[in-house]
């Protein structure tokens, strides 16, 4: 029981008449890395939005860290220990790297309530350390995010997640817009998280990446979970077959 970090039962989300997510039963164990795959509109992002409190579910139950939860907003999910990197990155363009990394949880030198003095040096050093740990290279920490490439911005967002993650990390297509070298960096970050035993949900379209990084693959199709596959017991062709609907799995097995 306590081995399970996240569990959903009958998770359902309707947008008006559209059944974007239907009766999703999902489990994630401690230290486990799971990939969510599926075609566009299969319900992957919808599923993540329900778990992270960005949207309120239509019905179903969610347990996180042994407790039944119903997050009122992304902040509640974050306070509970779920960190997410979304496709739209949630960075403040006009702030520099340390300010973005510590956005909303700034280090304080001298506490004066809302007028507290910032520990700029401390945040800068912590940022350097965090970027070193995740092997992210940024030309100049002091320049604003606006001037950076998509890959660099993504790296900042991921470094933030990795720095503060407490219990569960979710990445929604973290390498979709990245070049080869930047993708390798992000994958290295994910491996580091695996070594540290931090559970992770990865949404990705990249088959090589998924087989490289995760323990288990969950396939979504038309709003439903259609397959739950251990990496060793499947291959790329098999997964593609589930994604396209050429093959279906017994749902009783999926709940395992």
């Amino acid at each position: 029981m306590s081995d399970i970090v996240l569990k959903t039962e009958g998770l359902t989300k309707h947008y008006g008449g559209v059944h974007a997510l239907v009766d999703a039963n999902f489990e994630l164990r401690r230290g486990e890395h799971v990939a969510i795959m599926g075609d566009n509109g299969a319900g992957k992002s919808t599923f993540v939005r329900q778990i992270t409190g960005v949207e309120r579910r239509t019905s179903g139950k969610v347990w996180f860290d042994g407790q039944e939860v119903d997050f009122a907003g992304p902040l509640h999910a974050r306070e509970a220990g779920i960190e997410a990197v979304f496709q739209n990155l949630a960075l403040a363009d006009d702030l520099d790297v340390p300010s973005n990394l510590f956005l909303g949880r700034e280090k304080i030198l001298f506490n004066l309530g809302p007028f507290s003095i910032l520990d700029r040096k401390g945040m800068r050093q912590a940022t350097e350390a965090a970027l070193k740990r995740t092997a992210v290279k940024i030309p100049n920490l002091g320049s604003t995010i606006r001037n950076m490439s998509g890959g660099q911005r993504q790296c900042v967002a991921i470094a933030r997640t990795a720095t503060f993650a407490s219990k569960l990390i979710i990445m929604d297509e973290p390498t979709a817009a990245l070049g080869v070298q930047e993708t390798a960096q992000v994958e290295n970050i994910v491996r580091t998280l695996k070594d540290n035993g931090e559970p992770l949900i990865l949404i990705s379209h990249n088959m090589r990446q998924v087989f490289d990084l995760v323990d288990r693959i969950v396939v979504f199709r038309r709003g439903r979970i259609v397959a739950n596959l251990r990496k060793e017991e499947t291959d790329g062709q098999d997964v593609v077959a589930y994604i396209t609907g050429a093959k279906t799995q017994n749902m009783a097995a999926a709940a395992l």
């Binding site: 902040l75 949630a90 403040a92």
Partner: peptide, 9 residues
């Protein structure tokens, strides 16, 4: 980015 600020708590 007001939304990012809100999501950051």
């Amino acid at each position: 980015n007001e939304e990012a600020a809100r999501m950051s708590g």
